[in-house]
C-alpha cells in the first residue's frame, strides 16, 4: 500500500514549544520543540530513560509538563479541565500493557467510552464497535473476555477501543514491547493499515522495520532532548549525530 507524506505547509496539530518536565529533581524533558502536522506519521526512538514515553504521554495530559507551551489541535494543555477533556476526545492512546478492562467483554470495552463520553445510543455504539473490530480483524472475538485472548489479540482490541472515539490523533506507547515475537507482526500490520488511511500518528517503538515503512519522520531522543530528526530514509541511511549512529548500530546489529 502506498503511504503518502502530507503536503508541506499543512497546519500543525501538535506543537511543543520549549516544553520542560521534571520528575521531582530529575529533568526528564529538556526544551522540547516539536511540531506535528496533520496526517503526519512520527516514530520516536531512543534508549530507555530518554523521555520518549513521557513526551507522548504529555500530549494527552497523562503527564503534566511544568514549563513551556504544548498545544494539541489548537488547544493549549494546562490545568484547565475542559481543555484536557476536549483534547482526550480527539486523541486516542494505545498502551504497552494493553490496559483492557478485564471484567468487561471485548464489545463492552469498546462501547464504554462512546456511550459514556460520546453519548451514543447503545445500538449505534455497538455498530461502531463491530466496525472497528472488523477493521483490526478480530470481530469474531467480540463476546470473549480480554484474558481469554492472546497478547496480540488484546493489543488489537486496544487499538480498536481507541479508534471507537474517531480520534484525529493516535498515540502508541511501545505497543509491541510486551508481545511475544510471533504476535508482533499482526499488530504492526494493523498499524501500517491505519497509517495508510491518513490518521496522524505518533509512535514510540523499537520496531525499526515498521519505522522505515511507515514513518514520515523519525525522531531520536536521548537524555530528554530531541537529538536528531529526519525522514525515515535519511535517518536510517545517513544518521548525522554520533549518538544516533551509536544507538542505531546497537539496535540494527542483529
Amino acid at each position: 500500500m502506498s503511504i503518502t507524506p502530507p503536503a508541506p505547509n499543512t497546519p500543525a496539530v501538535i506543537e511543543f514549544s520549549k516544553v520542560n518536565k521534571w520528575f521531582a529533581d530529575f529533568h526528564v524533558l529538556r526544551d522540547i520543540d516539536l511540531s506535528v502536522a496533520r496526517g503526519e506519521r512520527i516514530v520516536i526512538c531512543g534508549p530507555s530513560g530518554s523521555g520518549k514515553s513521557t513526551l507522548i504521554r504529555c500530549i494527552n495530559r497523562l503527564e503534566e509538563h511544568q514549563t513551556g507551551c504544548l498545544k494539541v489541535e489548537g488547544v493549549e494543555l494546562s490545568d484547565d479541565v475542559q481543555a484536557i477533556e476536549s483534547v482526550r476526545r480527539q486523541v486516542g492512546m494505545v498502551f504497552q500493557q494493553f490496559n483492557l478492562f478485564p471484567h468487561l467483554t471485548v464489545l463492552d470495552n469498546l462501547t464504554l467510552a462512546p456511550m459514556w463520553v460520546g453519548k451514543l445510543p447503545k445500538a449505534q455504539a455497538e455498530e461502531r464497535a463491530m466496525q472497528q473490530l472488523r477493521r483490526v480483524r478480530i470481530a469474531e472475538q467480540a463476546h470473549k473476555y480480554p484474558l481469554q485472548l492472546s497478547g496480540g489479540q488484546q493489543q488489537r482490541v486496544a487499538i480498536a477501543r481507541a479508534l471507537c472515539l474517531t480520534p484525529k490523533i493516535m498515540l502508541f506507547d511501545e505497543p509491541t514491547s510486551a508481545l511475544d515475537p510471533e504476535m508482533i507482526n499482526e499488530v504492526l500490520e494493523v498499524m501500517v493499515e491505519l497509517a495508510s488511511q491518513g490518521i496522524t500518528m505518533v509512535c514510540v517503538t523499537h520496531e525499526m522495520g515498521f519505522a522505515r515503512q511507515v514513518a514520515d519522520r523519525v525522531i531520536f531522543m536521548d537524555e530528554g532532548q530531541i537529538v536528531e530528526q529526519n525522514t525515515a530514509a535519511a535517518f536510517f541511511d545517513h544518521p548525522q549525530n554520533e549518538r544516533t549512529q551509536d544507538f542505531l548500530s546497537k539496535i540494527l546489529a542483529h
Binding site: E85, F101, L165
Partner: peptide, 21 residues
Amino acid sequence: AYGQHEAAQALGLPRSAELRL
C-alpha cells in the same frame, strides 16, 4: 492496577463513570 485508571483517563471517562464502571 494504575493502568486501568490511565486507560479510563485516556478514553476521557468522567471520574464518576470511571469509579462505577
